[in-house]
Design a protein around this nucleic acid. Structure first.
Lengths: 149, 149
DNA sequence: CTCTGTGCAAACACTTTGCAGCTAA
DNA sequence: TTAGCTGCAAAGTGTTTGCACAGAG
């Protein structure tokens, strides 16, 4: 099992190097380290968490580098920013069921209704004991206004 | 139309007063002002934006009050915090399609797969020109661990 | 009168930016 | 060699907390 995982890791790292080259990015030890830690963790870590892990291997790495590297990874598609996180809190007084669509450029949020989304059923017991409070469905994209620019 | 809207607003504000009483909250001008602004706007404003609006009517209100009031509104169910916003960015190196479920207490995010969610179709043209980049579906709730506490 | 809510200020957490030196290609 | 990357420091933004006073009940 461990062997399989080691091989998987090696392959992933190789693909990552390729991806860096394709995008004209230099292959630095820090970059490799950050990516490796992100691959090896099951959590969906914040920059801070990655930082703490990477520092075991690169004691001199800075939090900024981790931060910038993670954003770079997201840029070239080697990682994702977990949906919706990061911006200031937004509030909504509409209590009826409705959906949001958010422009990633100007951050505007518009409401919309869509039938298919309302009927979604989820596993009521995920691994036995996760109490579901709400199911979030929304759409991210670029609004007409921002496309023109 | 304006009359209809005025009546609607009056009714909403009345219900809000009731809700405050039910929850043992005092009815203060600031609280009413914040809620009213949130009702009247179509955007999904941040605390800052609400603050600027409310200040036209209550020049002495502070940003903190707006902030706290909005959180209180969310607490008693008079408003919602728009999904996923507010926390630090989180990253994920898994590039295959999968879903997240997030515990609102400990902020842990776990992956899960669910068939129904993958087939979702969205209106390809919302109001004509919104370019959809991705459809986000996730589940919020309380994980087994946090329920025990 | 009492106790919650408000306003102010300070602390805090996370992110972003500028710059000088370093290093992969 | 040189363009891009790193590390450090500082500033910016949004949120939280502590406390004294004011105002709702």
């Amino acid at each position: 099992m461990d062997n399989g995982r080691a091989a998987w890791l090696k392959e992933k790292m190789g693909l990552f190097r390729d991806k860096c080259r394709e995008n004209g990015l230099k292959i630095t030890p820090q970059r490799l380290g950050v990516y490796e830690q992100l691959l090896l963790t099951e959590e969906h870590p914040s920059a801070e968490v990655v930082y703490r892990k990477v520092r075991r291997k690169f004691p001199n790495i800075s939090l900024d580098t981790v931060n910038r590297t993670l954003l770079t990874l997201a840029d070239i598609g080697a990682a994702f920013i977990v949906e919706g996180s990061g911006d200031p809190k937004r509030f909504d007084a509409r209590t009826e069921s409705h959906r949001h669509c958010r422009c990633i450029k100007c951050k505007k949020i518009r409401d919309f209704e869509h039938e298919d989304l309302n009927g979604i059923k989820l596993p009521q017991d995920m691994d036995g004991d996760f109490q579901i409070l709400r199911t979030v469905v929304y759409v991210e994209g670029i609004c007409g206004n921002c496309q023109k620019k």
